[in-house]
């Protein structure tokens, strides 16, 4: 999936995942896209949600694909992706480890947990390990404040986490 050349949108992701491309295309085609660019722009964020859903991230080729479909400029699409924290243009790991950094978890020591995870994995918040197994991130309040501090690994919730539990959590990811 490496870049074959340096031109825009030439990362080969679309070609490598024809089914995902088809799914995204079908979704965008189902929207009432017309010639009014302002109106089309109103569908941009939901299209990007769908795209990230099927591809896992938003590489340049996918951004360009969405931009062409909605008839808006790639720079605008990139502007939106870089603005919203939910969107990412780099691939994420198989296990997405998110530490809740909401206020309730913070006062109960979530930063220590984040430090400890970061020490174990050798990556900082927002990064992914080189073997693409783990991504480490922060997460705003998941609303399980009674379980603070909370760590989520993909969809699994760990509550009342202590620094000692970090190794256990990572072991669970095998």
């Amino acid at each position: 999936m490496g870049k074959s050349c340096s031109c825009i949108g030439c990362d080969g992701v679309l070609e490598a995942h024809p089914d995902a491309k088809k799914e995204l295309e079908a979704y965008i085609d189902s929207l009432p896209i017309g010639d009014d660019i302002d109106a089309n722009r109103g569908y941009l964020i939901q299209s990007l949600h769908k795209a990230q859903d099927v591809f896992g991230y938003l590489p340049e080729s996918v951004q360009l694909f969405v931009a062409n479909k909605l008839k808006i400029h790639l720079s605008e699409v990139y502007g939106v992706i870089s603005f919203y924290s939910y969107f990412t243009d780099v691939p994420v790991g198989k296990y997405k480890i998110n530490v809740c950094t909401g206020t309730a978890c913070f006062v109960r020591g979530s930063m220590k947990i984040l430090d400890e995870l970061s020490r174990h994995l050798g990556i900082k918040e927002g990064e992914t390990t080189e073997d693409k197994r783990f991504s480490l991130g922060g997460l705003r309040c998941v609303g399980a404040c009674s379980l603070a501090p909370v760590v989520m690994v993909n969809d699994k919730v760990y509550g009342n986490v202590t620094p000692q539990m970090v190794q256990e959590i990572l072991n669970d990811c095998e």
Partner: peptide, 26 residues
Amino acid sequence: IKYGAGAFVCGEETALIHSIEGKRGE
């Protein structure tokens, strides 16, 4: 229904409106 994408500032009403319009939520 329109979806946010993780920007606290979009709680501000003019930013929220921009976000619904598909722009950066400024």
